[in-house]
Amino acid sequence: MDLFSHSWSALLGAVAATPDEDFERPSGCSGWLVRDLVCHLVVDAQDVLITLVTPAEGRPTVDAVTYWRLVGPPAGEDPLDALIPRLAAAYGEPRLLKFHLDDVGSAAGRAAELADRTRCVRTRDEVLTAGDYLSAYVLEWTLHHLDLVAHLPSAAGPPAETLGAARAALEEIAGTPFPAVFSDGDALLIGTGRRAPTDAQRAALGDLAAKLPLVLG
């Protein structure tokens, strides 16, 4: 199974199925509405397109796991983070935002299908194979799918296969597995600080609790 395509198609489908009135609801990304998250996905899709046509010479410097950097909690100083809500509001109507994401997102999906996954590409001053780059984005898409449906209880969540793959990636980043009693969704949400653990979950985490949240950048 191509997990990049599977996770991306599921996320695009979930956005398309989101009623317009729900675009004003909060998302799972702190401080962002659903419309802001969808606007961020447009930027992400553009990044995929740009990266896949930016070939690189030399050996990879990162892989699908080490591509992700652990960063501190958002300080509100990232210009792009500040731009996203203003840009999302400028669309005016959710249908325009949906259209743009479908347009750019479909192109990103086709580019991924056509990419030579053994070829090296450059992004963020790093070199990695196109295959590793696309694999890294399975974690991104799955987390943002969880963000999309965080306050939309009737919406479809991420596929089980991509939840499992994203959890495995986050466990590699953490350097240790999450407790077996955690569902994949719980591991991802608690591991990245999107949800606080219950007392029982914190006890199950043991020493891992001190490493959390894993804020990725």
Rank of each mutant, 00 (worst) to 15 (best):
S5V: 14
H6F: 08
W8A: 15
A10G: 13
A10N: 09
L11D: 03
L11S: 06
G13P: 00
A14D: 01
V15T: 08
A17K: 04
D20G: 13
D22N: 13
F23N: 06
R25M: 05
S27A: 09
S30F: 07
V34K: 07
D36L: 03
D36N: 07
L37I: 07
L37N: 04
C39V: 02
H40E: 02
L41C: 05
L41R: 11
L41K: 07
V42Y: 00
V43A: 12
V43R: 15
D44Q: 12
D47E: 14
D47K: 14
I50E: 15
T51E: 09
V53P: 02
T54N: 13
A56D: 07
E57W: 02
E57I: 04
G58M: 10
R59C: 12
R59P: 11
P60M: 07
P60W: 03
P60K: 01
T61S: 15
V62L: 03
D63C: 07
V65Y: 05
Y67I: 01
G72A: 10
P74Q: 05
D78K: 05
L80N: 10
D81W: 06
L83M: 14
I84L: 05
A88V: 09
E93F: 09
E93I: 04
P94I: 14
H100S: 13
H100Q: 15
H100G: 01
L101M: 05
L101S: 10
D102P: 00
G105N: 07
S106W: 01
A108Y: 03
G109Y: 09
R110I: 02
R110G: 08
R117M: 00
T118N: 14
T118G: 15
R119K: 12
T123R: 11
D125Q: 12
D125G: 08
D125C: 01
D125H: 13
L128G: 08
T129L: 09
T129E: 10
T129G: 08
A130V: 03
D132S: 12
Y137V: 01
T142M: 06
T142N: 03
T142L: 04
D147T: 00
V149M: 02
A150Q: 00
H151L: 02
L152V: 00
L152E: 03
S154G: 06
S154W: 11
G157I: 00
P158W: 02
P159K: 04
A160N: 06
T162Q: 03
L163K: 08
A165Q: 13
A169R: 10
A169H: 12
E172Q: 15
G175R: 04
T176V: 11
P177L: 09
V181H: 13
S183Q: 08
D184V: 00
G185S: 12
D186E: 15
D186W: 02
A187Q: 04
A187L: 06
A187V: 05
L189R: 15
I190R: 10
G191I: 06
G191D: 06
G193I: 03
R194T: 04
R195S: 09
P197A: 05
P197D: 08
T198R: 14
Q201A: 01
R202W: 04
A203L: 11
L205F: 07
L205M: 11
L208S: 02
A209C: 03
A209F: 08
A209T: 07
K211L: 12
K211V: 00
K211A: 14
K211Q: 15
G217A: 10
